[in-house]
Write a protein that binds this DNA or RNA. Structure first.
Lengths: 168, 168
DNA sequence: GGATGGTTACTCGGATAGGAGGTGTCCGAGTTCTAAGGG
DNA sequence: CCCTTAGAACTCGGACACCTCCTATCCGAGTAACCATCC
């Protein structure tokens, strides 16, 4: 079992898009080049985030992507659910009610399956941690600990790749 | 992304095997019938748990499966890792070091990727919850809340399906 | 009557197909800028 | 000189193969009990 790599690509892209101000955007092609990814496939992932309301897409020349809301309003859980859905990774099949051990009368199953409960509780801990982490937190940690030269390199890159109808 | 159903089948089977005492076993065929599962496929999952040291298998007539250790020494994490391995579901691809944004000198990447750190922290919360839940906890909850008739039904079933060389 | 060896029946175990979901790519739809042509 | 209009270039978006992993099944290997035979 492995998480879709779209989550990683999406978070990296969103953090980079945070440098856009106003109507500025960054095209998918540039984002793909920034991280050495397949452009076609990255765009597929970005589309998912657009549908989820995390990003906005602008068509046409000087178009591209930008954040749909501020960094501090985007949680990791939001991005996770954009790709994985809001279902649980442990899906109880209720096998306790399927074989010889089962009883026909539903009255005997008033409580949820304890296994289901325990697995869901663990998942809830996972989701809570994701929900409590905002992209702004990650950005702050990065700005604090990152190498100065690296920061400058990234800033230089963003200035070159920002696009907007005004800033031709 | 979805968890292998082997986890659910394995936990249910282990809890049922807890009724075995001494050399008693329950064959895979009976376990499959108990929950209405495919015998061949369930055995495949049980084998995984045998390899992981959670169950023991006894070949030959009157053979079957039994627990390799007491219920209170088996955590959900142990079973989870038996099927999913001890790797993380979020595997960082280090894309920050692959494209135009990357810098060749490794010195600029002294810190782990903040995204990786955050995702792993969430996973750790998940695993902690699983590690803190023992099968004996689940069994206790079940015994406390289960319907009396259902309990009797299960006890009756286990008495019929226990096998041991002594108890021919 | 007891021991022994072959047979039998039952178990687990690994090797082999089938299917769903994630991965990766291509080409088309839409939009905006641009530039040429006419008023 | 200004407005209109047709074209082109660039963007995103959905439809189409590929590949990996989970699912599912079958048949063979191994073991212990059983039973007939022999001592």
């Amino acid at each position: 079992m492995q998480l879709s790599e779209g989550v990683e690509w999406g978070i990296h892209s969103a953090l980079l898009l945070a440098s856009c101000q106003g109507a500025e955007t960054i095209p998918g092609k540039a984002l793909a080049a920034a991280y050495g990814l397949s452009e076609s496939y990255l765009v597929k992932h970005l589309k998912v985030m657009v549908t989820a309301g995390i990003l906005q897409s602008v068509p046409g020349p000087y178009g591209g992507y930008k954040l749909a809301k501020p960094l501090d309003q985007i949680t990791l859980l939001r991005i996770y659910e954009a790709f994985e859905g809001n279902g649980t990774i442990f899906r109880c099949q209720e096998i306790r009610r399927c074989g010889e051990l089962a009883m026909k009368n539903k009255q005997h199953y008033k409580h949820d399956c304890q296994i289901k409960t325990a697995m869901h509780r663990a998942e809830q801990a996972y989701r809570n941690e994701l929900a409590n982490t905002k992209l702004s937190d990650i950005a702050a940690e990065f700005l604090q600990s990152a190498d100065k030269k690296l920061l400058h390199h990234i800033q230089s890159w963003t200035q070159q790749n920002h696009r907007s109808p005004v800033n031709k």
